[in-house]
């Protein structure tokens, strides 16, 4: 399953990183505590969070995450987008809360095997 499949299935609004949507998503990580994500997320995971400041890009880049989905219609800060574009991290926005979107992505990933 690629990021673009998630974008289509969940009608995500792509904020930046349009050129990297063909990345493979190997799993998901949901969380708003940056240190926790640093400690536990794995390469290729899609990160689901409501944090919007530019530190999320640093975390995603260091952990080589596939991309970031902002939930609850949270809008990224302008410097977050600048940094994400520079670091080649796709940032998407959804109106769904964490539980709902995690559940849907989990189902999609499970079905895709």
């Amino acid at each position: 399953m690629k990021i673009e499949d998630l974008v289509q299935a969940l009608q995500l609004e792509v904020k930046c990183g349009k050129d990297y949507l063909n990345r493979e998503v190997t799993g998901g990580y949901t969380g708003d505590l940056l240190s926790d994500v640093m400690g536990n997320a794995r390469e290729g995971y899609i990160w689901i969070t409501r944090q919007v400041h530019q530190n999320i890009v640093a975390v995603a880049s260091l952990k080589e995450l596939a991309g970031i989905i902002l939930i609850n219609s949270c809008q990224p800060a302008p410097d977050t987008l600048e940094k994400a574009e520079a670091e080649k991290i796709p940032v998407m926005v959804s109106g769904l809360p964490a539980f709902e979107i995690s559940g849907q992505i989990y189902n999609l990933l499970t079905l895709a095997g």
Partner: peptide, 29 residues
């Protein structure tokens, strides 16, 4: 389980989110 997996397992068994969607009216950041 991590939060993603926990949500996924419960969702797959029929637990739903307590609200369907957060409308983007206030420009939430």
């Amino acid at each position: 389980y991590i939060l993603f997996e926990t949500a996924g397992r419960l969702y797959a068994k029929g637990i739903v989110g307590c609200l369907p969607k957060v409308e983007n009216t206030s420009g939430r950041t």
